[in-house]
Amino acid sequence: MTMLALIRDTFREALARKIFWGLFALSTLMILFFLFLLRIDIVQGATATISLFGMDEARTVDAARLIRRVYGAIATFLYTWGMLLAVFASSGLVPSFLEPGRVELLLSKPVTRGQILLGRYLGNLLVVSLNICYLVAGVWLVLGAKTGIWAPNFLYSIATIIFLFAVLLTVIFFIGVLFESAALAVMVTVALMMMSPILAQNRVAEKLLSSQWSRDVWNGLYHVLPKAYDMGRMTLDLVYERRAADLGPVWSSAAFGLVLFALSFLIFLRRDY
């Protein structure tokens, strides 16, 4: 019951601070964008024309393949867009509950610090997950209705986006608990996201870097930090109905999230308020 109350409280705060509605509005905007600006006509079952902003690019392609490609491009876009929105939206929800005058009252209740942190985390995850479900499912419905081609694999991107967000949320919590700063939490999380595609080029780095030491550092960072880029590629594989080559990024990202959440918990447990 206490956990449910904490989750509900986070949800209520997200609603009151317009975070939920902001995400909802931006998701709706995105769905409307696909509804009105992207036009896909299927001609004679096998050819298609895709028109974006009125500029036609006529090609004769297999319609289902084309739609899958469109879905893939959109999934990549949503993956990045959705993640950035979610990170920005969530950053303030940690320092807010640690405000002096509020946290003492929470701590005076018969709940453990672990429950408080976990309740906050799950509440935050729920707020974002609902919006991501709405965004991805909404875009999928629009595309499906407009093309007549339904690609259920597109919906896998819900799982990958939520999974990666769950990992990045641990970064937000870690920075939030450690420094009680929303801005810093966003900076660090976005930096990790941006570093991911660079670090993922470890084969290129192997050739470019002169010393073994620097190659080891590069590889170490790649293996330790969350793999937003690899998870993005995995999302594409799922949308294209390809087998994901390696599940390593999932496990290593999950391990990173677990370790960081455990560290956040330890800091929160030991801190004086």
Binding site: E13, E99, P100, G101, L105, K109, P110
Partner: peptide, 20 residues
Amino acid sequence: ASSRKPVGYLPENHRFPTYF
């Protein structure tokens, strides 16, 4: 945590969430 069950607390300079 269980020891705090019979305790009611009103902090000084409280900051109750205004969305309530």
